[in-house]
Computed example of a mutant assay.
Amino acid sequence: MVQETDETMGSIAEAVEWGRAGRTGPARERLTELWAVIGPTGDPFHRCTLAHYLADLQDDPAEELRWDLRALEAAEALTDERAQRHHAGLAVAAFRPSLQLNLAEDYRKLGRPDQARRHLALARESLPVLSDDPYGRMIRDAVERLGATLAATDPAS
C-alpha cells in the first residue's frame, strides 16, 4: 500500500518535535491552531493524533484530561483503513492501551482515584493487542507503575 502524503500530519509531527525539544509553548500554540482548522468533526486520525500530543503539552491537569478525552473520542471514530493510509502497520485497537492509560493518569492527578482505576482497568484489558516490542513494553510498564501508584495511595484497591 502506498502511503499518502498528508500535510496535516506533517504539521502535527513538526509541532510534536518542537515540544520534545523543549519548545512547549510554540508547540502548544501550533497544535491549537491546527485543531481550529481540523475541528471537532474533522478527520479522526488527525484529531486523535493531535489531541493525544496536545494533552501532553498542557500545564493544567484538567486541560490535559480534556484533550485526552478528545483523543479517545476520535479513536472511537477511527478505522484501521484510515490509520493504515498513514502507516500500513497501524491498528486502532493498539491505540487504546495508551489512551486509557493517559486518562487514568489524568484522573489520578485530579484526585479522582475511582475513575483512574476504571481507566487503568480498561488499559489493562486492551494490553493483549500490543506487540512485544519497545512500544508495547513501555505501555505495559507504565500501566504497572500507575497500578502500583494507585495501590499505594489506596491499599484497599
Rank of each mutant, 00 (worst) to 15 (best):
D68L: 02
L127N: 04
A152W: 01
S126C: 03
D106F: 05
D132I: 00
A116E: 13
R85V: 04
T153M: 13
L78R: 09
H119Q: 13
R118F: 04
D114Q: 14
L130H: 05
Y135I: 09
P113T: 10
E125C: 10
G147M: 02
L130K: 04
R124W: 06
A148E: 14
L101G: 02
S98D: 14
D132M: 00
E144K: 04
F95L: 13
R85P: 02
Q84C: 00
V92D: 06
A151L: 07
T149G: 01
V92T: 12
A74I: 09
H119Y: 15
G136N: 09
M138A: 15
A91E: 14
Y107V: 00
A121R: 14
P128Q: 02
H119L: 02
G111S: 04
D68T: 12
R117E: 14
A116D: 14
Y107A: 06
G111N: 01
D133K: 08
A152L: 05
A116F: 08
Q84D: 06
T79G: 05
D114E: 15
A75P: 09
K109W: 12
A142D: 13
R140L: 06
L103F: 07
E105Q: 11
I139G: 02
R140Q: 06
D106C: 15
L127R: 10
P134L: 03
R96C: 00
A77C: 00
A123K: 00
R82S: 01
H119P: 06
D132C: 01
D132A: 13
T149M: 12
L99N: 13
A88H: 00
S131Q: 10
V143R: 11
R108T: 10
D141S: 12
D154C: 00
L103S: 03
E125T: 11
I139N: 04
K109N: 11
P113R: 10
H87M: 09
K109H: 13
D114I: 07
A94Q: 15
P97N: 09
A77S: 07
L72Y: 02
D133T: 04
I139L: 00
A151P: 07
R85Y: 04
T149R: 13
R137Q: 13
R145F: 02
K109V: 02
D80C: 03
R96H: 15
A93P: 00
P97H: 11
G136L: 03
A152S: 11
I139V: 15
V143N: 09
Y135F: 15
A94F: 01
A93C: 07
L130G: 06
E105H: 12
G89Y: 01
E125D: 15
E105I: 01
L127C: 08
A142V: 07
G89S: 13
Q115W: 14
G147K: 10
R70L: 14
A74T: 09
A151D: 13
T153C: 09
D106M: 05
L69C: 11
R85S: 07
A74K: 08
A77H: 11
D141T: 05
